[in-house]
Simulated scan of single mutants.
Amino acid sequence: MKKMKKIAALFLAGAMVMSMAACSGKSDNKTTTAAADETTETIAESTAETKADAEMGPIFADLVENGVLKVGIIGNDPTFCFHTVQDGKDALVGFEVAGMYEMAERLSEYLDREITVEFYESDFTGCMSALQANQVHFVTRLSPTDERKQSWLFTDVYHKSNECYVALKDNVDNEKFTGTLEGVTVCGQMGSIDITMTQHLYPDAEIQELGMVSDLLLSVKNKKSDLACMNAVSAAMSIAANPDLAVVDSLTWEPTDEFDKGCGLCMAYGNEDFADWASGFFADITEEGLWAQMQSDAAAQLDETALEDFIVE
């Protein structure tokens, strides 16, 4: 629409130049020059806008054209992302979900057009497959490891938490839960930084990569795994929903950047402009205190419905 207005302005300015040029008199020459200058300026603005559009990365270009922010989000992980009931209907909530809605609002202002959000909720494998197929713009909550950065572009880190290990409550004092965890089977979510850190910290542990957090808990309860590794937020939800599980405090670890750089948004290279904008977005809402408020609000939304997926028998 803006370009159409500028094209119309060019025609109008051109008509003014031609009309004034047909008149005689020195005073008219000044007016003609002013109109010509205005026309030149309008052409320059239009050219600059066209150039800016051409230099947009794929995400921004798609947002401008279609107005939908396509988010790949790893589901069933309170308080990041979980389901609850609102007004009698199932609702996807969590502080990452709230963050994406806020991102859409600020993108609407930035791009001067309405931006809505579309969530693709799956596990790590499903989300990465969707990203590779260009079905989503990015995947949330992934750690920018050196290996991943060889293939994918990341924003700055927006969240980081302690690493915890969950076991059966009557097994938390297992004498094997020391040293390198030799003879201990540890399960974790496929592709997660939890697995990577466990391999570094406990090289003799036997690793099992599974899908969702509920799969990890079931593996521990069925004694197919001795421990389930996960972030502190997921661990808290897990033991709240399952009284027979507990965190092994002696194994809780505050990760250093060497092992856990935290998590950010993962997207295809070529979207450096969007990655920079998104990093600025997270910095802004953190400074404003909004990011912390979203996390508190998400915790307040936890109820029996939200914990249902964590209850495993």
Rank of each mutant, 00 (worst) to 15 (best):
Y120S: 08
L111F: 04
S122Q: 07
E109M: 08
M100S: 11
E121W: 06
E102F: 04
S122D: 13
M103P: 00
F124R: 01
A104K: 00
G126I: 12
V117P: 01
M100T: 05
V97S: 06
Y110S: 12
E121D: 05
F124S: 12
E96F: 02
M100H: 07
S108G: 11
E102P: 00
M103S: 12
A98E: 10
M103W: 04
E121L: 06
R113Q: 15
V97C: 10
E118G: 14
S108D: 10
Y110I: 12
G94T: 11
F95Q: 01
S122G: 11
E105S: 14
G126T: 09
A104P: 00
L111A: 11
S108E: 08
R106A: 14
G126A: 15
E109K: 14
E105N: 13
V97R: 06
E109A: 15
E109Y: 03
E105T: 13
Y101L: 11
A104H: 06
A104G: 12
A98Y: 02
E109R: 14
L111R: 03
E118I: 13
E105V: 11
Y120N: 07
G99V: 10
E96A: 05
T125Y: 00
L111W: 02
Y101A: 13
G99D: 05
T125H: 00
V97Y: 01
D123T: 04
A104Q: 07
T116S: 15
F124Y: 05
R106E: 10
E105P: 00
D112N: 13
L111K: 05
F124K: 02
E109L: 13
E118S: 15
R106C: 08
T125A: 13
R113I: 13
R113M: 14
S108N: 09
S122W: 08
Y101H: 12
G94D: 08
F119Q: 03
F124I: 14
E114F: 09
Y120P: 00
F119A: 06
D112T: 15
T116Y: 08
R106Y: 07
E109T: 13
F124C: 12
T125F: 01
R113D: 01
E121M: 09
D123S: 07
R113T: 13
V117H: 04
S122T: 14
G99P: 01
E102H: 03
R106N: 07
L107Y: 04
E102Q: 05
T116H: 04
A104N: 08
E121H: 03
E114Y: 06
G94H: 03
E96M: 12
F95A: 09
M103R: 02
G99H: 00
A98H: 02
G94K: 01
F95K: 05
F119S: 06
Y110K: 14
V117T: 11
S122L: 07
G126Y: 01
A104I: 12
M103H: 04
Y101N: 15
Y101Q: 10
L107Q: 02
G94V: 08
F95I: 12
A98G: 10
G99W: 00
M103E: 07
E102A: 11
E105K: 12
V117M: 09
E114V: 09
M100D: 08
G94Y: 03
F95N: 11
F119C: 06
F124T: 14
S108L: 09
S108K: 07
R113F: 02
E109Q: 10
F119G: 04
D112I: 12
V117G: 05
I115V: 14
F95P: 01
F124D: 09
E105D: 14
D112V: 15
T125P: 00
I115T: 09
A98P: 00
D112F: 09
R113L: 15
D112A: 15
S108P: 01
